[in-house]
Design a protein around this nucleic acid. Structure first.
Length: 151
DNA sequence: GCCAACGTTGGC
DNA sequence: GCCAACGTTGGC
């Protein structure tokens, strides 16, 4: 089992939205590096930190579980969708998504606190300029963030 | 709203 | 295959 961190803008889709829906697809990943991780490495049963970006309180806010591995993101074929990709080929979809299930809210752990923690300096999240929307989390980093949330 | 960092595009 | 221009991300 592996650990991940998924970024989302709460104005669009927040941890509360996920709680209300319980299970949701995680669509709209349009970055090849993130896509490759979703496609090749994110598996059913993996746990996911939900991270709120581009908002007042940026940071980790909860946990979800992957309940379905990679399958084609159908929004790439929908001209009405913000995630429409005119170059996407239905025979060979270029974008994929996974399904996640709500697990729990966590006490808010701010980005500032994550950045200030020496044990987390290797996280892509806190590295300057990193914009990955799907990134791996090590078991040690996961445990540290759980500890921070319960302090 | 600013702007640094990064990814993508497209001409050559 | 290079690289300049452009668009996007995302913290502040």
């Amino acid at each position: 089992m592996a650990y991940w961190l998924f970024k989302t803008e709460p104005d669009t889709f927040s941890i509360d939205t996920l709680k209300a829906q319980q299970v949701s697809c995680w669509e709209g990943v349009r970055n090849y590096q993130a896509r490759n991780m979703l496609r090749d490495e994110v598996k059913e049963g993996d746990l996911v930190l939900i991270y709120h970006s581009s908002c007042k309180d940026v940071g980790v806010v909860g946990i979800a579980e992957v309940v379905r591995g990679a399958y084609p993101d159908h929004f790439q074929f929908d001209p009405e969708s913000d995630y429409f990709d005119p170059k996407a080929d239905p025979e060979n979809p270029r974008w994929i998504m996974v399904d996640i299930k709500y697990r729990q809210h966590l006490p808010y752990v701010s980005l500032a606190k994550l950045k200030a923690n020496e044990k987390l300096v290797e996280m892509p999240l806190v590295k300057r300029g990193n914009r990955l929307s799907v990134m791996p989390v090590t078991a040690a980093q996961w445990e540290e963030i759980m500890a921070m949330a319960s302090r």
